[in-house]
């Protein structure tokens, strides 16, 4: 078996040393730091990206909160404005209603006054007409014109007696 021939041990040991040591130095000095550097840079990149994303999300959340606050405020202001407008309208309508009622009442009173006056006038005319009619009727019936004040008294008596 060639493995057990000691005459080849020295060359194998020396060449093992001459190859393994440079490999170790290359890996240790050049390769491993380089890999570590690249992996670290990648990790750092990922970390900063994550950090940035977190910050942006927080900002977005703040903006959203602001927006919602503004929205709520606007909504409450709108509700208030509607309420105020309603109240104002109610008040205005009540005022106008009242004014119109007063106007109406004044008109009605005036009309009533006019009616009363017309009635009185009419009643006054009624006695004159009655006197004239009574005088004319008496003149036709008796052929002589009765005295004006006699007719007046008589008519007054009759009307009051009826009244």
């Amino acid at each position: 078996m060639p493995q057990l021939d000691p005459s080849f041990f020295s060359t194998q040991l020396v060449w093992l040393f001459l190859t393994l040591v440079p490999l170790y130095l290359i890996l240790r000095r050049a390769v491993l730091p380089r890999i570590g550097e690249v992996l670290e840079a990648r990790q750092r990149h990922i970390d900063t990206d994550l950090e940035k994303a977190t910050k942006l999300r927080q900002e977005a959340e703040a903006v959203l909160a602001d927006y919602e606050k503004a929205l709520t405020e606007a909504r409450s202001r709108a509700v208030e404005a509607v309420k105020e407008a309603g109240l104002e309208m109610t008040a205005a309508s009540a005022r106008r209603h009242e004014a119109f009622g007063q106007e109406l009442a004044a008109t009605a009173q005036e009309a009533e006054g006019r009616i009363t006056r017309a009635k009185e006038e009419a009643l006054a005319h009624v006695s004159t007409v009655a006197n004239e009619v009574a005088a004319a009727v008496a003149a036709k019936l008796i052929g002589a014109e009765p005295a004006a004040d006699q007719v007046e008294n008589t008519v007054k008596e009759v009307m009051e007696g009826r009244g």
Partner: peptide, 10 residues
């Protein structure tokens, strides 16, 4: 006196 030849193994 040592054989340090460059061999197929080396």
């Amino acid at each position: 006196g040592l054989d340090l030849s460059f061999t197929n193994s080396s």
